[in-house]
Amino acid sequence: MSYRPAIQSIITAIETVIVGKEDVIAKSLTALLAGGHVLLEDVPGVGKTMLVRTFSRAIDLEFKRIQFTPDMLPSDLTGISMYNQKTKEFEYRPGPLMGNIILADEINRTSPKTQSALLEAMAERSVTVDGELKVLPSPFFVMATQNPIEHEGTYPLPEAQLDRFLLKIEMGYPTFNEEIALLTRFEKTEPLEALQSVVSKEEVEQMQREVREVHVSSAVKQYIVRLIHESRKDPNTYLGGSPRATLALMKAAQAWAYIQNRDFVLPDDVKALATSVLGHRVLLTAEARYKGRTANQLITGWLETLPVPMDREVKEV
């Protein structure tokens, strides 16, 4: 894969800390540039937090971390107004949401009430505190993590809220060699401390604007729509991709094409992101789950059989 130089420098910087995981880094960058948010799903300890912290370091962004617990309240996120006795006025004390990169750790451990506050902030890019609208800083990028195996005492995210994450990324364990390299790297130093930012906040905003300029041909649009339609038609799904998913897939593909230094989207881009975009949006029927099917399997199946459109003119299949 060849990247745009600025992107390449970010990836190189992050890779001084994170071993391997190029795909995860690229996808996270894609979500950041497409203006979306990422749901990282994996077991504890594979480097989710480290990834987010490195991200915020490499791109000169303000990093905030929220550790979700069951007793957390929405105001713990948004911040509160406190009475200042000196000035005799209410003063706004910003919550952890007032940052550029938010690590929302173990999002499924908190109550739905708090979850929805976060997700609303993600969608609206603003919070209301005491009737006052507080606009969140830009860029605003949430990386939420959830642990798949710790079901005890968790509140699974409702479908409607999952839909707000542009991508769901699985970290996965490092390979044998990667893990050796990991040990070596952390043996004597702390690489994160040495990391210098390579891209400024403004540059990121500039890139976000440029991503929207990436061309999407009608052939690729057809490809996206056909894929989403496939997800709705498949008898194994009881909920296919929503029009929001269609939009998400296109935006993600644009960003993916952008980071690969291209100003147009290829069907390959759609293919590369399809499982990450649709994986958490497609819900399987009980029967399909019982048979051991997974959403990713289904999506891969659709991609294998769906012909790639080559025509400009729109044909409904």
């Binding site: 390959d268 293919k271 991609l303 059989t305 769906l306 012909p307 790639v308 080559m310």
Partner: peptide, 21 residues
């Protein structure tokens, strides 16, 4: 399309592949 037809005839899997794949 003709090229892909010939490739298919030569045993390449064409369906579900993007041009670059």
């Amino acid at each position: 399309r003709y090229l892909m037809k010939r490739l298919r005839a030569n045993g390449f899997k064409v369906e579900g592949r993007t041009p670059s794949e």
